[in-house]
Structures are given as C-alpha cells and as structure tokens.
Design a protein around this nucleic acid. Sequence first.
RNA 1: GCGUCCAUAGCUCAACUGGAUAGAGCAGCUGCCUUCUAAGCAGCAGGCCGGGGGUUCGAGUCCCUCUGGACGCGCCA
Length: 586
Amino acid sequence: MKNYRRSWKDAVFSAVESMAAKKGLDTGIDPDLVVMETPPRPDLGDMAVPLFPFAKLFKSPPAKIGEELRAELEPFAARRGGELVPAGPYLNIRLLRPGVAGDILRSAAAQGDSYGRGDALAGRKIMVEFSSPNTNKPLHLGHLRNDALGESVARILRAAGAEVRTVNLINDRGVHICKSMLAYRELGGGRTPEDEKLKSDHFVGKYYVLYNEMEKKDPTAEERARELLRRWELGDPEVKALWEKMNRWAIEGIKDTYARTGIHFDRFYFESQVYLKGREEVLEGLARGIFTRDADGSIWVDLTHQGLDRKVLLRSDGTSLYLTQDIGTAISRHGDWPFDRHLYVVASEQNYHFAVLFHVLRLLGHEWAANLHHLSYGMVNLPEGKMKSREGTVVDADDLLQDLAEMAAEEIRTKERESEVGDVAETAEKIALGAVHYYLLQSAPSKDMVFNPRESLSFTGNTGPYLQYTGARISSMMRKREGMPELRERAFRPELLQGEEEWALVKLIGDFPETVEQAALSYNPSFLTAFLYETAKTFSRWYHDNPILHNRDQDLSAARVELSRGVLQVLKNGMDLLNIPFLENM
RNA sequence: GCGUCCAUAGCUCAACUGGAUAGAGCAGCUGCCUUCUAAGCAGCAGGCCGGGGGUUCGAGUCCCUCUGGACGCGCCA
C-alpha cells in the first residue's frame, strides 16, 4: 500500500500546487500539508485527504476546495483507475481493487519470508544493548520485558535494512556479586547446583537470598562482603576462584534462559573487564578543564546549566563509578564498531543516569554522543504493586515460563490435540513464549504495565496464542490444499476477491511493510502487535463464513487461497519480528 | 524541595503521532461445533478520555494549572 499512498500523495501535492498557481498564489507550499489518512469506515474509501489546511491556504470552504482538487486530480485518477469521492471536508480516494489486490498478493508471495523488509535504515549501523543482567541472581519478569523489547527492536531494525549488533553487558562485579559469594562461602559447604538439583543461576540466587537473611541478623555481613570486594580488586586468588565458579554458574543459567526464549547477542561484554576504562577519559577531561576536582580529590562534572546536577565522576580514592564505566564503554564501543546509532534498552528508572551520561560524552567532544539513545521502558508491576525481592514477590522468568508451558500443555490435552501437535512439550513451550512476548510487547515501551500472573496470560482473545492459532489454522488449510491438484493448477484471478473483508485483508497485507518501518523508526514493536492482531482478527472473521477450499467455483477458491497465503506470510514474518514462535499446528 | 514520566470501560491495553461516530481483550450476560482447528465467530452491556482553563477550523493527543500516582535527584549499580 505504501507505494500507492506515496504516489497518490505526490499527485495530490502537485494538484494543490497547480491550484495555487491558477489562483496566482505563492506556490511554495509545504508538502507536509498533504496528509494521507485512512477513513474511519472502509466504505468511505481507501485513503483520505483532509482539506482543512488548504481551506486556510486558499481562504475558501473545505468542500469547495474538495471539488477543485478533485477536478485537478481527475486525470491522474483516470490513469490509475482510482475513484475520487468528495466527502465534506475530506477528499476520499477509492482504489481500483483487482489491480491493487493482484499487485500486493503477488508481491507478498514472491518475497516470501522477506516480505516486509525494507530499506528505510539501509546502510545504518545500529548497536543495541539490552538485558545486562547481574550475576548474583536469575532473570525475573523485568528482564523478560527488557529482553523481549531488545530482541524485537533489533529484529525490526534489521528488517528495516539496518546493520545491527546486539550486545549484552554482564554486570559481574561489585558488592552485590560479593554478597552471594559471601553467603555461599559461609553457608554453601562446597555444594554445587547438581547436588541441589537446581538450575545453576537459581542456585546462585538462593545464596543471594540467604545473604539478605544473614544481613538482617548480622550487621557485620555487609562489611564482610566489602572485604571480599577489596580482595577481589587486589586479585586474591581464592576470592577470584570463588568468583569465577559462581559467575560461571550464574551466566550458564542465564544463557540457558536466553536460548529458551530465543534471545541472541552478537557480543558479550563483561563489566569486570571494562570497568577500569573511563577513568582515563575522566582524567583527561579534568586536564582539559572540562571537569573540576574537589579538595578531597573527587572529580566532578557540573551539569546544572542542563537542568541536571553536579555529578561525581571519580571517587576521592580515585576509583570509578557506574557512570565512569559507562563513559568508558561507550567510547571503546564506538572505537570497536563505529555505529550510527546506539540504543540502550534500560528501564526508565535510569532516565537520569543516561541523560547525564550523554551530556558528559558530548562535553568530552564526542559528536557521536548525539546518536546515543536510551530506549527507556516502564516497570512491570504486580497488582499489589512493585515486585520486591525482600518480600519474595519477584516473578522468576524460568518459573513463569514453566507454569505457562504447563498450562498450555494441559490445554492441548483437554482439546485432545496431542496427535496433531506431535511434541506436546515443545508446542506448549512455544505457546508459553508466544503468550509472554506478545503480552510484554503489546503496550508502548515507555509505559509502566501491570502484570497479573493469574489473568494476564490467558490464551484467548488479544494474545500471542491467538496469532499462533490463526497461523496454525491457515497452515493446516494449506496442507489440505496440497492434496487438491485441480485447485493448485488454477491461475490466480484477483478480480474474484470482491468482498469487503477480502479487500480489507488485501490492504492489511499491503500495509505490513509500512508497519514494520513505523515500528523500526519509533523503536516500538507495539505497532506490530496491534497490526498482527487486527490482521488475524479480520482473517478469522472472514474465514468463519467464507469457505476457502470448498467452493463450487474453483477459481474463487484459488483466489481465496492466494489471499490466505498472503495473510499467513504476514503473520509468520511479523511474529518472527516479535519473537513469537510460529506454529504449523496447535 | 526539584526534575522526568504517567492518568482512557470494573480490570489490562489501543487510538494511524492534531482529524470524521474513542476501539480491542479479559471479566459478566446471549447465541453458534454431522462443513477448511470452538485457543474460534457473532451479539448485549459497559465512557464527562482524572478536574479546570487555554491554543486550533478541529484536542484523548499540544500549552498552563490543580489533583492523584510512578521513577529519579548516592563518592550504590
């Protein structure tokens, strides 16, 4: 549809220009005054041009402008086979359906799995950092939102033509890491995850919880953890060995969860290896007079003019902070791989941190700092409020997926679909993933969301499994078609797709590439979730009362099969961008 | 105290980035399986878009203000 919209928009614009010329008005008209919209009801037309801006420009009523514009556009419309329908203050355009349907469906079929890909971001190198877990506990629901968003945005950016590199900065260093180490050292008795039959990151997390209990009873615990950190920084072999062992457990477990959820990183960075960079950058900034040093030796940046604060960049003892590290990693990453854009997928609680970081990098003279972007996303809350590890209300990622997979498996059994589905456990797992990813991506990233463990992840209605189900039904239909040779031989006759719903589906299929581009440019997968839901809904409605394979008119069947194939391709490609597994059967 | 963000149906979210009569799902009530998967389809009911003011031909969307909420303003990460 995009090419249609664009060419009509151009035509409308030149029509307006020539109207202006005829009236002896200034022809320097802003092309943005031409807005191509979709009418609220399909019977009004396929595209709509609001005439208010021109009414103002030409100082005459919108309806009159509509008539003039229509006269001006008529030759173009005649050539393209479109129909112009003035509707009060709007000029609506009705496309010639068979031609457009043929174009769109043939193009979707020809492009197959790459249908929807575009070149809006061609040649752009975009780095996407996401997940960035701590190695003292397993992933929880908040990470799942981060991962879902990061992975999906990366896939969408690639589809829009960008060269994307996904990176993960593992936070494997600091007091919080030493806390689980301390508890393990004092209470673990040398046991291993295998001994306790625990997933290795859960095993580490258990000791983090034990530490917190320990700290409540024993105020010196924190000091002992700090002591461990000091010894770690000095390279104490015993502490290093312990750290390596527990980190391996944590990271192995976390990587299992990534594999399970279809999350991929092109590169891992480890905080323990990069935390010292940034120090020199700060010292150099000090030498150049960009930063100042206080009497106690600490180094500061003054951002009060930017509406931020004075911030410490280096402690009085010369050690670096979180911010210092991020300065260093940004600079070295840009050195490694000179990106055109760097997205940090990090929760909104760190808005302030990134505002400061970007300003500091700009102050240091890095023009590319203007290309850093904090893709801030809202918190995932429970109906009772915030998740709190101390109150044990944190929803663990693995446990949640496990519960959902069991629910899905139960559903398969009650529907008696075991034999069609084949591997019940695998299908159930994919349904669980589809449900979680869809849920986490359906609302705009910036907004906080409420997650109700009991109700939020139903498998009916506006959900991931609904998309999967629609895909599975079409797939099943396509398999049946394979056994109907007389139908397969029919040529595609788009003019047979005459129903309103059929036309609506054609337009949706045609709009898919544009939706992908919109999601890419705004870093917002929720445009795609909404779009795919509408596509699946429109299909289901049509499918319900229009026989596809079983028509007396085989040509009609063939045309409907072609339309269904287009819907299937859009669902499949779109679900892939959202990291929702496609199912041939469910 | 200061800063940023948010407030739409009982609940969870949309609304083409300022356009025509604000839409879905869940929950509730009603129908539809000897026909391509009922995880589906159709219907009923549910709204002062937090309050007030402004800008505009036009505001859920932009500005101001009030109310209520989230997050932040650590030599923590």
